[in-house]
Write a protein that binds this DNA or RNA. Structure first.
Lengths: 332, 332
DNA sequence: TGAGGCGGAACAATACCTTGACTGTGGCGG
DNA sequence: CCGCCACAGTCAAGGTATTGTTCCGCCTCA
């Protein structure tokens, strides 16, 4: 990409917000703003063509790192973004973007579908695929960047779920949107650990809301998907049992170990690897959770089916890059 | 319990709501309402004494089964509920009740703590232990019943987390309260499956919010908290002994005086300061107690380990703002 | 003014956590 | 079903945080 980088330096200084990073066109002279905006959006979001209106550009983004996600609060003048089929691919983010529209008009096209959002509504799109976003007036929105694998593992046929209209006034959509807005609103007030924990809930709720509007026609050999689902459910219920092993899972689900192994193969994983992942994940969450602040690390580890602290320690570090106690400290 | 059951039948019919069960005094003739209300509350919540205001009773409850929890939306006229220490124990629910206050005034007493809620605020109490709830005006609230084991396994020392004030305007409290209100609001709109899934999130968020306000001695590591508890127990047993001093406590508990001093430091107090506080408090209670009306002040003081009346007098005034005899007179 | 309670500093004894090396087996893939 | 080797599980050593001690000087209050 040829975007010039003369703003890179000034950018890195322009962000003294407590938790989030703030970018604003206001910090620059009007003639520079458009170039600057192109660079920022290209770097932080996706490589898109930006068509600003004739009037002056105003655009303000506050970006929060949110565990595995990124939450952005965006206010902007009218704008059009377009990602073309052959965009040069220094992909900034291999992610889906979930949008919670707050005010103004918002129109999105992707995969031949088109969606209009009212304030409160949500939608999802693939940041790396061609898309077209039109906002003919000043508007504001929340944008949640969700790394592709995270959604893939949660939603079968996610690629068919883009550019759908998720109503934000009723039912689960309203609950999810309300929750995420609430998180964004309180972001600065929250402890780092609390804030992180909320991201998991946000993702869960988004996925739930998505499920209500997804088209029903994607076909993934149903029985296999169901079987895998059952297996995972069984694992979830028995995570804390140290003797959880292929034989146990097999007995508990009525499927042969070999078959289970094949099921996991589909997502480039294996049974026990998955089990350890889930255990680690549970421990990690508990380490962050202030409610368990008084508990020893070994208590937590044993509670989730580890039976040896050294084993846990090693695995944890390998997975998350630092030792359990460092992790707990670092996220206060 | 002797509550009559003549309403049982009519109750079971009075609930054609889609998901929730609705109870309302409106469905009954005014003279019957109070009896009916007593029965419903006793059966659905806890066995409490109900003191209605002089005016007519209005009370409306919609109860949703929420996976392992129960969510109630309650609107009511002024009311006072009191669970006495020796309530006959056909315990309707062995659960904690989380309250999200919506409108009006709400005051709760339990375990010697007292909490006032503003709209939006939350608190938690143990439905099976004595408690006292005062709402002097019409009010509305959400109530989430959480089976005891569910909270026990999530929060160490949950029994000390009752009657705490969880602010509902800021930070995690606002996120949690907002989420649950949103769930209640959309309850009728949601699929059964969706609705169930949300309960897990609700519980998680509640627990998180609780963690931010739990009393500080839970940030104390377990062993330290235990040690402090032992020290206090020893003090309580020997309050009346005038020679109770650091050396004695040390001997009685097996901890060094210095260490005990450190323990008290954590609650911004010191050993002997605590001892005098307890003695004064005991004396104060006895001064108020009509049983001891005939006893001389110096008898009372000496009985609680003071060995010098002038010392007692001075401390008392310093603490409670008036002399012991004034205090006794003033509170007849 | 002196007795006694309080808390700072320095230190010993643990408890708790992390890491490394090693090994035998059970989970994985053909 | 079977063979192979990655990896779960042990043991031991080292490091760091926590717990509890002693000694001592200061300050308060009777």
């Amino acid at each position: 990409m040829n975007t010039d980088t003369r703003f890179l330096h000034s950018l890195k200084e322009a962000m003294p917000s407590t938790r989030g990073v703030k970018y604003s066109t206001e910090d620059f002279a009007p003639p520079d703003r458009l170039d600057w905006l192109r660079e920022v959006i290209g770097r932080e979001y996706a490589n898109v063509e930006i068509t600003p209106p004739d009037a002056g550009v105003f655009n303000e983004m506050v970006i929060y790192a949110w565990e595995q996600l990124r939450l952005s609060v965006i206010r902007s003048d009218a704008i059009t973004l377009q990602r073309l089929p052959r965009e040069p691919d220094l992909i900034s983010q291999d992610a889906y973007f979930a949008v919670i529209h707050l005010s103004g008009c918002y129109r999105l096209l992707q995969n031949g579908r088109e969606v209009f959002l009212q304030p409160g509504d949500m939608t999802l799109y693939d940041a790396t695929l061609p898309h077209h976003i039109v906002c003919p007036q000043p508007f504001s929105k929340l944008l949640i960047s969700i790394p592709r694998p995270l959604l893939r593992e949660r939603v079968a046929g996610i690629e068919h779920c883009t550019a759908l209209h998720i109503p934000g006034r009723l039912g689960i959509g309203s609950v999810a949107a309300g929750f995420i807005r609430s998180c964004a609103h309180q972001a600065e007030q929250l402890q780092a650990g609390e804030f992180s924990l909320l991201s998991e809930h946000a993702l869960d709720l988004l996925v739930l809301a998505l499920a209500t509007v997804r088209p029903s026609h994607f076909k993934l050999s149903k029985s296999r998907a169901m079987a895998l689902h059952r297996v995972k459910a069984f694992i979830e219920n028995n995570l804390s049992c140290p003797s959880l092993n292929p034989a146990a899972v097999s007995a508990g689900t009525g499927l042969s170990p070999r078959y289970i192994s094949l099921l996991f193969k589909e997502e480039d994983n294996s049974l026990m690897r998955y089990v350890w992942q889930r255990r680690l994940e549970s421990c990690r969450k508990e380490l962050l959770n202030p409610i368990h602040a008084g508990h020893r690390i070994c208590d937590i580890a044993f509670r989730w089916g580890f039976n040896d602290l050294s084993h846990f320690s090693r695995l944890f570090k390998q997975h998350f890059g630092c030792s359990p106690s460092d992790y707990r400290e670092g996220h206060k």
